[in-house]
Each structure stands twice: as structure tokens, then as C-alpha cells.
């Protein structure tokens, strides 16, 4: 009797898992507009392992210079594939848009300009403000995810709003960054799908290598290590 119940519950869980995973290609195939429309509460059950895995999948994007150059430590942005400190004493400033009369928009337009070393551009080019600097450099995967979710640190956004934010032109710029800059190698489609999935499945965070494994649905979550770039001195 006991055996049959535990087997059936196992099967139920497995079926759920399979169902959830089968959603991924369906969701991805729907395109960006449709994924934006899906909300966590629309009947998709919480899935911590799935969410964590989805977040892990986008870590390489977040660590790529196209993102990291504006989410690094310090009161200044970085530039280039080698992530050197932005030249010409450019700083974050009190609102993330520069200091005094020298603003991001002093040079950056709302679109890229053709040619090597010309200023890149996207609408509303700016850094996070110092009040919520969204510094990702030096964070573990878990910490990064927690920062993403923390309304006090992420611009008062819910996971759904985070997903929306990822569709803004400034973020998507990472895939068309202009001459001489390597675009984010992970496909934009995949990235958006994964962030969507993470939000829908309850936005759980991956554990770090050293952390004790947590148990979800009776299965241990296998922690995934990820690439942490190091930055040289300023």
C-alpha cells in the first residue's frame, strides 16, 4: 500500500517535471511578445529546481562584458571586450547619468554609430543610479540571483517586471553592440526565454558550490558552477 502511493506520487512529480520541461520549447517558440504576456500565476506551478536552472543558464550572459561593463564595481562604467575602465574620467554620477554637465548623453546617442571606437548607443543610455547600483561584479550566482529579486536593490521590480525590463532596448543592445564589440554569444531568444522561465517558475535562486544542497520535490538540486570573470585594477 505504502509502496504504491509513493510510486504514484513519484510518477506525479515526474510527470509534472516533464510537463514543465516540455513547456520550454513551446514557450520559446512563441516568441518574445507571447512570453512577456505569461505570468507566474497563470497556472504554472512553482518549480525551484527549474527556476534555478533557468537562472544558471543566463549567468554567462550577465557575466559577458556587454552587460558586466555597466554592472561592475566602482562609480564608473567599463568599456571594450577587455573591460578597461571607461576613458575620459566618465563617472556614474548621482543619478547614473553622469556628473555635473558631462552626461552619458554628452556622447551616447539612441543608436550605435558606425565605425571602430565610435560611441555605442541605445535609448536611455545610462548606468544604474548609486542608490541602487546593481553591481554584479564579485557576486556568486546565488547572490546575483538574490540581487535580481530584491526590490530594494533592483529598482522595485517584481520578477515579471524584471522580465519586461530585459526587453528594453538598452538591455537588448548587448546583442547588437556596434563595430568592434563582441555581441553576447548566447542567443537573445534563449536568454529571454530563460529569464521568463525563471520568473514563471517562482524565481528561485541557484545554490552556490559550497552551500548545502537543498531538497526540492525529494530530489537533491545539483549545484552548477559558473564563470566568474575577474577584473584587473582600474
Amino acid at each position: 500500500m505504502k509502496n504504491r502511493r509513493s510510486i504514484s506520487s513519484l510518477l506525479a512529480v515526474a510527470a509534472t517535471y516533464c510537463f514543465l520541461f516540455s513547456l520550454i520549447p513551446w514557450v520559446a517558440a512563441r516568441g518574445v511578445e507571447r512570453t512577456r504576456a505569461l505570468l507566474v500565476h497563470e497556472g504554472i506551478p512553482r518549480d525551484d529546481a527549474g527556476a534555478a536552472a533557468a537562472f544558471e543558464a543566463i549567468i554567462p550572459v550577465l557575466h559577458h562584458p556587454r552587460c558586466m561593463n555597466c554592472h561592475s564595481k566602482g562609480d564608473f562604467p567599463r568599456q571594450g571586450d577587455d573591460s578597461h575602465r571607461h576613458t575620459m574620467q566618465i563617472r556614474r554620477g548621482p543619478d547614473g547619468k553622469g556628473v555635473n554637465a558631462v552626461r552619458c548623453s554628452t556622447c551616447h546617442q539612441d543608436h550605435n554609430l558606425a565605425g571602430l571606437h565610435m560611441p555605442p548607443g541605445a535609448p536611455d543610455w545610462h548606468l544604474p543610479s548609486p542608490a541602487m547600483p546593481m553591481i554584479w561584479e564579485g557576486l556568486t550566482d546565488h547572490q546575483l540571483c538574490e540581487l535580481f529579486k530584491d526590490p530594494h536593490g533592483n529598482g522595485h521590480r517584481t520578477p515579471a517586471q524584471i522580465v519586461e525590463h530585459m526587453h528594453t532596448p538598452l538591455v537588448l543592445w548587448g546583442w547588437t553592440p556596434g563595430d568592434g564589440r563582441t555581441p553576447v554569444p548566447t542567443s537573445q531568444h534563449y536568454f529571454l526565454a530563460k529569464i521568463q522561465e525563471w520568473a514563471e517558475k517562482g524565481a528561485a535562486c541557484p545554490v552556490d558550490v559550497d552551500a548545502p544542497t537543498s531538497e526540492t520535490f525529494g530530489f537533491p538540486v545539483i549545484p552548477i558552477t559558473s564563470y566568474k570573470p575577474t577584473f584587473g585594477p582600474e
Partner: peptide, 21 residues
């Protein structure tokens, strides 16, 4: 290329490098 400032103008009280705008 907005690297030298020789083209500078002021708009809305802000420095603008007119060669890239």
C-alpha cells in the same frame, strides 16, 4: 568620434559633442 571635445556645444545646460549627435 567624441574623443577630443573640439566640437563641443551646450544644450539644456549639458555638454554635447556635436560631432556624434
Amino acid at each position: 568620434m567624441a574623443q577630443c571635445g573640439a566640437c563641443t556645444v551646450i544644450m539644456r545646460g549639458q555638454v554635447v559633442r556635436s560631432c556624434v549627435m
